[in-house]
Every structure is written in structure tokens, then in C-alpha cells.
């Protein structure tokens, strides 16, 4: 990793990550309520929302699965012993974001009358290929890139436009993760004017 990348990583405010961990650990219900309000999961939404509920709930459920997998992947990276302090702090911060996304998605599924799918008991990761910090960063960058594309592909499909807006908001966060990870890998953090 370049010195510039290390400096950039170190400048990320990890106190926010600590705050998120606190919020999630001590008051997930409060967080979800606030987040659901943000995402448009108001009571009126559930009552007016019938036209394509299967489709929207299905998309949200798939997104929840991807967020849970990302949480597990960052946990794997954090516990690998391969990450330096600055990178570890960032990984924990990003994991916190994914936890917030997952909380919002689960709460929204519930608010729409859907059933939150059970979380898998285990995940498949290319553990044998993760031998140094750079491998972990590259693995995480790949997941974040894929997440950007997945949300981009989901945004136009929601019947409810509030959900499209919320998915776009999450997309923006994933794109920032991807850019930071690319920077840490010594790659151009923003390789183009568009994502796809």
C-alpha cells in the first residue's frame, strides 16, 4: 500500500464507526425505526403499497442477503490478522455501514408485510487465497464493486420510488467503499465518470 493510501485510510474518522457499533449493539430497534423512516417505510407506505409487493420484497431480500454476506466478509478480514491498524479500522467502519444497510432492509421488508429471510449459517469465501493484506483489500473491493452494480441494477426495478431512492443512497455508500479500497490498493480510486 502506498504512503498516500495509508494516510488517506488513517484520515477516515473511525470514531463514527465506534458510534455505529454502539448504536447497533445497544439500540438496533431505534436505529431501524429511524432508518425505516428515512427509507420511506412509513405506515402509509405499507397501506398504499400493494401493486408489486412481491417484486419489491424479493429485491430487498436479495439485497439483504448480499449485505449479510458483506458483513461476514469484513468480519473474516478483520479476524484474519492480515490487516494493519488503519486498514482494520476502516474495515470495521465499512462493516458497520453494511450492518446499517441490513437493518434498514430487514425493517423495510417487515414494514411491507414480507418475511425477513433467515440468515445463512455459513458463507463461502476464498479463504485460501487471502494470504496478505492486499488480498483482503482486493477481495473486499470486488465485493463492493459488485454491490454497486447490484444496486444499480435494482434501482429501476422497484415499484415504489422511495425504495429506488433508498437503494441509490446505499449504492452511493458502496461506491465510496469501493473507491477507498481501490485507493488503498494503489489503483485509480475513481476510474471513470460512470459506474455500471
Amino acid at each position: 500500500m502506498t504512503d498516500f493510501s495509508k494516510n488517506m485510510i488513517n484520515h477516515i474518522d473511525t470514531s463514527q464507526a465506534s458510534r455505529r457499533k454502539f448504536l447497533i449493539g445497544s439500540g438496533a430497534a431505534g436505529l431501524s425505526a429511524a432508518a425505516v423512516a428515512l427509507i420511506g417505510g412509513k405506515e402509509a407506505l405499507a397501506s398504499k403499497y400493494k401493486a408489486n409487493e412481491h417484486g419489491d420484497v424479493t429485491i430487498l431480500s436479495t439485497a439483504l442477503g448480499a449485505e449479510r454476506e458483506a458483513i461476514a466478509a469484513y468480519q473474516l478480514g478483520a479476524e484474519s490478522g492480515l490487516l494493519s491498524k488503519g486498514v482494520l479500522d476502516v474495515a470495521v467502519a465499512f462493516q458497520g455501514h453494511h450492518k446499517e444497510h441490513a437493518d434498514v432492509l430487514a425493517a423495510t421488508i417487515t414494514s411491507l408485510g414480507g418475511v425477513v429471510p433467515a440468515a445463512p449459517t455459513q458463507y463461502n469465501f476464498p479463504v485460501s487465497q487471502l494470504k496478505k493484506e492486499r488480498d483482503v483489500l482486493a477481495f473486499a473491493a470486488g465485493l463492493e464493486q459488485g454491490a454497486v452494480s447490484a444496486y444499480l441494477g435494482a434501482v429501476p426495478l422497484f415499484d415504489n420510488r422511495d425504495l429506488s431512492a433508498a437503494a441509490a443512497s446505499i449504492l452511493g455508500d458502496e461506491a465510496m467503499h469501493w473507491a477507498v479500497l481501490r485507493q488503498a490498493l494503489g489503483l485509480n480510486p475513481v476510474p471513470g465518470a460512470f459506474v455500471s
Binding site: T62, G65, N124, G142, L143, Q145, G146, G153, S196
Partner: peptide
């Protein structure tokens, strides 16, 4: 294929 990597891999099942 990078666009697929949010959910898919060749070698193992994911989302």
C-alpha cells in the same frame, strides 16, 4: 463479470 461479483462467484454459491 465484476458487475456480477456482488452476488456470484464461479467456484461457490453465494447470494
Amino acid at each position: 463479470y465484476g458487475r456480477c461479483k456482488g452476488c456470484h462467484a464461479f467456484e461457490y454459491n453465494r447470494v
